[in-house]
Measured scan of single mutants.
Amino acid sequence: ETIMEVNLLKGPKGLGFSIAGGIGNQHIPGDNSIYITKIIEGGAAQKDGRLQIGDRLLAVNNTNLQDVRHEEAVASLKNTSDMVYLKVAKP
């Protein structure tokens, strides 16, 4: 597993990826991690090219996303300014 830091500039459609996982909404049984499950065509993440489906999202800005509820992860992604710092684990 490789840890990678990505600074992503939000586009008109936001960050351009979808997530799944978290406490109460496990993407993988027994694993509370938050995973990237979709990269949106023409979105910021696709244009940047570094994020991939299956990457594990560890942090957004200063918010640690390990062992959080799905709703908390979504809220932390929404409550960001235009430049967003992401910390991901690549499988």
Rank of each mutant, 00 (worst) to 15 (best):
L51T: 02
M4S: 05
E72G: 06
K47S: 12
A59D: 04
V60I: 13
A89R: 07
N7T: 07
S76W: 13
I19W: 13
D82H: 15
G14P: 05
L9Y: 08
D67P: 03
A59E: 10
G11S: 09
N64K: 10
K10V: 06
G49N: 09
I3A: 05
V88A: 04
I3P: 04
S76K: 14
L58Y: 10
N32A: 08
V68T: 08
L57A: 01
I19G: 01
V84Y: 08
L65C: 09
P91V: 07
G14K: 03
N64H: 14
G49T: 04
D48G: 04
A20E: 14
N64Y: 06
D31W: 02
Q26H: 11
Q52C: 09
G54F: 04
D31G: 04
D82I: 03
I40Y: 08
M83Y: 06
V6Y: 13
A75Q: 11
I19P: 01
S76H: 15
K87G: 05
P29L: 10
P91Q: 15
D67K: 03
L9T: 13
G49C: 04
E41T: 15
G16C: 01
D67E: 11
A20R: 08
R50Y: 04
V60S: 03
G49L: 06
Y85P: 12
K87H: 02
S33A: 10
I28C: 07
M83A: 11
I19R: 00
V6H: 02
K47T: 15
G22E: 02
L58W: 05
N64M: 14
I53K: 11
I3G: 06
K90P: 03
R56S: 12
Q46W: 13
N62A: 12
N61G: 14
G49W: 02
D82M: 08
V6G: 02
G43Y: 06
E5Q: 14
Q66G: 13
K47W: 07
A59G: 11
A45P: 01
K90A: 04
G11E: 14
V68N: 05
K38N: 13
R69Y: 13
S33P: 03
G43M: 11
S33F: 08
G14A: 04
I53Q: 13
T37Q: 06
A73N: 00
G11T: 14
I36G: 00
R69M: 15
R50V: 13
E71C: 10
E5W: 04
G21H: 02
G14N: 04
L77M: 14
A44Y: 07
S18E: 08
V84C: 09
M4D: 06
G24P: 09
N7C: 05
I23R: 11
N7Q: 10
Q52V: 11
N32S: 13
H27Q: 08
V6A: 04
N62C: 05
R69W: 11
N7G: 06
R69C: 11
L8G: 01
P91C: 04
Q66E: 04
S18A: 12
F17Q: 00
P29A: 12
Y85E: 13
L65N: 01
Q66C: 08
Q46E: 13
V88E: 01
V84F: 04
G14F: 02
A59L: 09
K47E: 06
L77N: 00
P12I: 07
E71Y: 05
G49I: 02
D48E: 15
I36K: 00
E1V: 07
I39R: 01
N25W: 08
R50G: 12
N7K: 11
V84G: 02
S18Y: 14
A89S: 09
T63M: 08
D55H: 09
P12A: 12
L15C: 03
K78E: 10
S18F: 06
L8A: 02
Q52E: 10
I28P: 06
I34W: 03
N79K: 15
M83T: 14
L77D: 01
L57R: 00
H27T: 09
K38R: 14
I36N: 01
G16P: 01
V74H: 12
Y35G: 00
K87V: 10
L51R: 00
G11P: 11
L65T: 07
S76G: 10
I34S: 02
L8I: 12
I36D: 01
E41C: 06
Y35V: 10
T37R: 07
K87E: 06
K47C: 04
Q26F: 05
K13G: 07
G21E: 03
N25M: 12
